[in-house]
Amino acid sequence: MNWVGAVVQGVLVGGWYALAACGLSLTFGIMRLVNIAHGDLAVCGAYLTLVLSSALGLPVGYTLPLVLPIAFAIGVALHLLLFGRALRGGPLAPVLVTFGLSVMIENLLVAGLSADPRSLDAGRLALAGVRVTAFGSVITLSWLRIAGFLTALAVLGGLHLLLARTSFGRLVRATSDDLDTARLVGVRVRPVFATVAGIAVATAALAGVFLGMTATFDPYAGGLSLIFAFEAVVIGGLGSLWGTLLGGVTIGLVQQLAAQWDVQYTVLAVHLLFFAVLAVRPQGFFPASEPEAA
C-alpha cells in the first residue's frame, strides 16, 4: 500500500460510513430522533440477507429487492409502535427506548442465530479488482469497494432529490422546520415520520449488506457501526446529508492513513479525531447552512 492508494481507499471506504450514517442523520434532522439501535438495524439487514440468500439459494445481490422493502416495513412498524410514542414521552424517552431496542435486537440475534461471526458471499465482485495508475503508483481497487461507494452516492443523491423535489419531500422539510405549524396547516405527521423511519432503516440495512460483504459481523457489531455512523454525522455537521458524506469520507481517510502507520491504531485514530472535532469545532465541518434536512 502507498499514500496515494491509502487516500483513494479512504474515500471509497468513507462511502460506506456515509451510507451507514445517512439514516441516522435523516431521523435526527427530521424527527429529532437519535436512534441508538441504528447500527443494530444495519446488522439485522446483513443477517436478513444471509438468511434469505441461503433459504432461497440466491446470490446476495438478488435478495436486495426483498431485503430493502422488508427493512422499510420494519422501520415503519418501529415508528408506529415505538418511536412515535417515545418522541412524545419527554426528552429522555427516545434515548432510553432505542437503547432498550438495541439490547433486544442484539440478544435476539444471539438467541436465534448464535454469536458466531458470519459474512456474506459477494461472489465475483469480492475477488475482482481494477488496477489504476495514479501519480506514478499502481493502486488495486476492489470492485466491491467501488460498488459500495457508488451505492452510497446514489442513495444520498436519491435522498436529496426526494427531499428537494417531491411533494413528499416538501412535507418532510416543512415538518422538520416546525412540527406544530405543520400539524396546524393540516399535514398528517405520523405517516410522514413513519416513512422517514422506513427509509432510514432501509439505508441502514443496505449498509449492513455491504458490511457483511466486506467484513465479518456478529450480533454485537451494531454498537461499533452506530458509533462510526454517529461520528460521521457529528464530524460532517448535524442535519446535513452532504456533510454526512464528507464526514464519512473523513473517517475513511483517517482510518486508511492511520493504517499506513499501524493497523492496530485505525479505530482509535477515528475516535480521537471525533473527540478533537467535538472539542474544537462541535458544529462539525460542513454544518447545514440553513435549518433544512437536505
Partner: peptide, 12 residues
C-alpha cells in the same frame, strides 16, 4: 416554514 420557498409553503 423558514427553509421552504414561499410557493412551497403555500403548497404544503
Amino acid at each position: 416554514f423558514p427553509s421552504l420557498t414561499a410557493e412551497e409553503n403555500i403548497k404544503v
